[in-house]
């Protein structure tokens, strides 16, 4: 037991590169087929979104011939692989560009909501007392608005834009994230290693950020995944209600809003964006499920 191994200065373990860790995580997903499917769906949409500018696509806003069927020939000799909509815009191009837009805004909005929500949550959970009362009360106020209604108010006041969506998602999600983080912190802060940090006189912020938060990451990653899904739904819903990202840029929700009344004779222009949306959200939910399953195993 007591044989000692000489080790030179390399105490801080070498961190693996982000790339390697990503593939390790993906390999882990093999253990959950459900999660794997989710990851693949998301990977597909992310790839599409990233490649959108490089793919041979029509301009999503270019008005060509309306109501073309799937695979119809375009006037310039190309093909409308997924047909065109009532204004004559290429549906394939609109779906792919729409994916880019919804993914960018959803990720950004979720990220902002997370930063705000986590800080609120650690503060409320760790400090307790008045800080907790105040933060929780503020959170309760925003939690008492049904999600869409909060968005409607914010859009009605600020006008429709991507930034409004970010604000709306932050107001609606941050309190929920705060509650989760607070709960996790309340549990974690009774651990002995927190007492150990306290008994060596660490500052509260050091304890919150270095000792507490890293240990809450498991459930938070799962939640972030689910929440990305919700945010996509929220953005699309706002678009559908006519309160989302402003036209004419492609937006899945708006595409649906416009296509549904005409669904009787142009079914594909309504089914396709609907399927795109459903698949992306399903991807997030399945991935979250898979991650939860794996994290519960050990």
């Amino acid at each position: 037991m007591t044989e000692t191994i000489k080790l030179d200065k390399e105490i801080p373990a070498k961190r693996e590169s982000g790339f390697k860790r990503f593939f390790k995580a993906l390999a882990l997903m093999r253990e959950s087929p459900v999660g794997m499917i989710g990851a693949l769906i998301i990977l597909f949409w992310v790839t599409m979104a990233v490649l959108a500018p490089f793919l041979p696509l029509y301009d999503p806003n270019a008005i060509m011939s309306p109501f073309q069927k799937i695979g119809a020939a375009a006037p310039d000799g190309g093909t409308f692989w997924l047909g065109t909509d009532h204004k004559g815009r290429d549906i394939l191009s609109r779906i792919i560009w729409g994916a880019q837009k919804v993914l960018i805004w959803a990720t950004f909005a979720t990220f902002v909501a997370y930063v705000v929500g986590m800080l609120m949550g650690v503060l409320a959970g760790y400090k307790g007392g008045w800080a907790d009362e105040i933060v929780s009360f503020v959170a309760n106020i925003f939690l008492s608005f049904p999600f869409i209604i909060l968005c409607i108010i914010i859009v009605a006041t600020l006008g429709a834009s991507g930034w409004t969506v970010v604000v709306a998602v932050t107001f609606a999600s941050a309190p929920q994230i705060m509650r989760i983080v607070r709960g996790l912190v309340l549990d974690l802060k009774t651990r002995d290693y927190i007492f150990a940090a306290q008994t060596r006189g660490e500052s509260p912020w050091y304890i919150m950020l270095v000792e507490l938060l890293p240990n809450a990451r498991g459930p938070l990653i799962v939640d972030a995944c689910l929440r990305l899904g919700y945010t996509v739904v929220a953005i699309a819903t706002l678009g559908f209600l006519g309160l989302g990202l402003p036209p004419p840029d492609p937006d899945w929700g708006l595409m649906l809003k416009e296509a549904v009344p005409l669904g009787a004779f142009a079914g594909h222009s309504m089914y396709l964006p609907a399927a795109a949306l459903a698949s992306l959200i399903l991807g997030f939910n399945l991935l979250a499920d898979g991650l939860r399953e794996i994290s519960l195993r050990d």
């Binding site: 459900v34 899904g229 739904v233 699309a236 819903t237 559908f240 929700g253 649906l256 549904v260 669904g263 079914g267 309504m270 089914y271 609907a274 949306l277 459903a278 959200i281 399903l282 997030f284 939910n285 399945l286 499920d289």
Partner: peptide, 18 residues
């Protein structure tokens, strides 16, 4: 139940209406 909760209301509505 994961499948159905993954599809937002107006998408379900679209399919059902269709």
């Amino acid at each position: 139940s994961v499948l159905t909760t993954s599809i937002p209301e107006f998408v379900t509505a679209t399919f059902l209406t269709g």
